[in-house]
Design a protein around this nucleic acid. Structure first.
Lengths: 337, 337
DNA sequence: CTGAAAGCGCTTACAG
DNA sequence: CTGAAAGCGCTTACAG
């Protein structure tokens, strides 16, 4: 129980104590529980496992990686972990990674292209076996350069071109929001559409606008604004939109919706009565707000979990298909009063 | 521009192309810009650096770690990254880590002791050089077992015993909240105190309660409730507290405060007029809420940044002192109407 | 069933 | 100023 950092136990430690060769020990410790017989005699297998257990042997991953050219490391790039949507997606990634014996490096890129580049280089320098991007730009330029290097990667949250991705069916989600508002009789609506380079905002807006157009109530450009995906962005966006006197606002993100609620209130409007507001994602806060928020639930945790699983298959050489997860409308007081 | 994963450039690649020995190349590439002369002749240094640049040489960190017994890796354990407070602290950690050439593994432990143990073993198995705990239990039992292994670590957000930590001066923060409410004439107040094992909640509550006691308005146990640090917890806590008819509620966390606002509203109270509510942290949402939230700002990003810096000093063998960062009261409509 | 060898890519103390 | 050697801890194809 000293505070000293004792030399860790290695294969050599075990081999010496047992009078065996390290290669034998390695083979045994590597074998799946059932195929132990392949590696050594039953008795030897037992002795090795027992001592490894007693001494708390843990293979040195640097040595393993050096030798096998596999790091079991995955790099995860997100705009910002302080966005609960991305943080929740990451929780899913982490859970799946742990199940596969992988570890992750996560890093914030703030949607700044130079930072995305620099952080990608950094994790690549750490010799990750694969990458997950939660910060893809719809244009896909940067991703093309990554693909050219032959590193496997998948996108989560946002899609881009034909690259493997796990996203919410955002178009459908936008449509759900629209159908809901249409059913309540709204015809003059507005959209807080998020950042123009993110497929999430693009697709949600498209689904919403298309549904309104199909219902004979086209949404003009003047009632669509682009802002950051946070409360402040939502407030600023709503302040501009309110001049258009919409009867309802669709924000492509719950936090933007919360900002919009504040702006509406400041303008003297009662949310859910004078104006309807719909968000997106169904973050835990949505249901607990003073005026609970109608929103489209996206399976954030699952998105991360499946994203990592997809990456594992990709790293194993499989061909994979993009996945679109199903959104679900959650009706609450912000549209029904 | 093929999609092939070409063999990466190693020291050997460089050495062979230049007709030098790998040890020479290694020495040169290692030297600080100014001490290059120590490593080889000026001309050789130039040739090596030039080729390394052209070929995009990146040292293999696994080989380096194996050889030097230093991984330049840090493990970070937090209750949950989907809590914006911890996510923001992590952003600070990441920023500082990048400056020091360190990479981090972050992992969610959900404040579950077995998970804390398991994840700690995991990152230790990855041979991190140090640890940062954002999920310390006040009792410090588990930390003692980590300390016994001789791995350097620091705590952020929460403190425990005398272990090195970077926290907000939470006691002072609680006091600030109390002074504010006292100055507004409140005498019958209540506290949503968070989880009982977290020093943040404990200290904030203590500072608050002590200030009220000193002012002659003791806060009885019946007006202090423990709940999770989220909106749902805050709502449930407030629902119980409202039976006590407090004129103001102090929630030790902004999200709990938001839940409390919802509960107050459901009870027919106007926040800022019929009841005052104070939060803690000043998360970005606080100022954007329909009723902007009075709260105590804690320097979250800085806490992470300084926490990592403290760890670096600890890993270098220095003795370090705990740091308490200064909180700041942000007065808004939730207490002033 | 077990051993011996080679090698992953790097660093470092030593020699010349 | 540069080279050669040893070794970090592991895996794997091969030999016996």
């Amino acid at each position: 129980m000293g505070t000293e950092k004792q030399r860790p136990v290695t294969l050599r430690t075990l081999a010496d104590q047992l009078g065996l060769h390290v290669s034998t020990v390695s083979r045994v410790l590597h074998a799946k529980p059932d195929e132990g017989a392949r590696a050594a005699s039953g008795a030897t297998v037992e002795r090795i496992r027992k001592l490894a257990d007693e001494l708390g042997y843990r293979p040195n991953p640097h040595a393993t990686s050096l030798r096998t050219r596999r790091s079991n490391l995955v790099g995860v790039l997100v705009p910002r972990l302080s966005d609960i949507v991305l943080a929740t997606i990451y929780e899913g990634i982490e859970e799946a990674a742990a199940e596969h014996g992988l570890s992750t490096f996560v890093t914030n890129t703030r949607d700044v292209p130079e930072v995305q580049r620099a952080r990608t280089e950094m994790v690549l320098g750490r010799r990750v076996d694969g990458l997950i991007f939660g910060d893809a730009y719809a244009d896909g330029e940067f991703l093309a350069s990554v693909a050219a290097r032959g590193v496997p990667f998948v996108l989560v949250s946002r899609r881009s071109g034909e690259y493997p991705s796990v996203t919410c069916d955002d178009y459908e989600g936008g449509r759900l929001a629209a159908e809901h508002l249409l059913s309540l009789g709204h015809s003059r609506v507005a959209v807080i559409a998020g950042e123009p380079y993110a497929s999430t905002g693009i697709d949600r807006t498209a689904g919403f606008v298309d549904a309104f157009a199909a219902a004979g109530c086209p949404v003009p450009e003047s009632r669509i604004v682009h802002t950051p995906f946070d409360a402040r962005g939502g407030r600023l966006g709503a302040e501009r939109l309110l001049a258009e006197r919409p009867s309802a606002i669709f924000a492509v993100n719950d936090f933007a919706a919360i900002g919009a609620i504040g702006a509406a209130r400041d303008a003297g409007l009662r949310v859910g009565e004078d104006i309807g507001i719909v968000g997106f994602n169904d973050t835990p806060l949505a249901a607990e707000l003073p005026v609970p928020l109608t929103t489209v639930r996206s399976p954030m945790h699952e998105m991360g979990y499946r994203g990592l699983s997809l990456l594992v298959r990709l790293m194993a050489g499989e061909t994979v298909e993009p996945e679109r997860l199903t959104p679900k409308l959650m009706v609450r007081a912000s549209t029904t009063g």
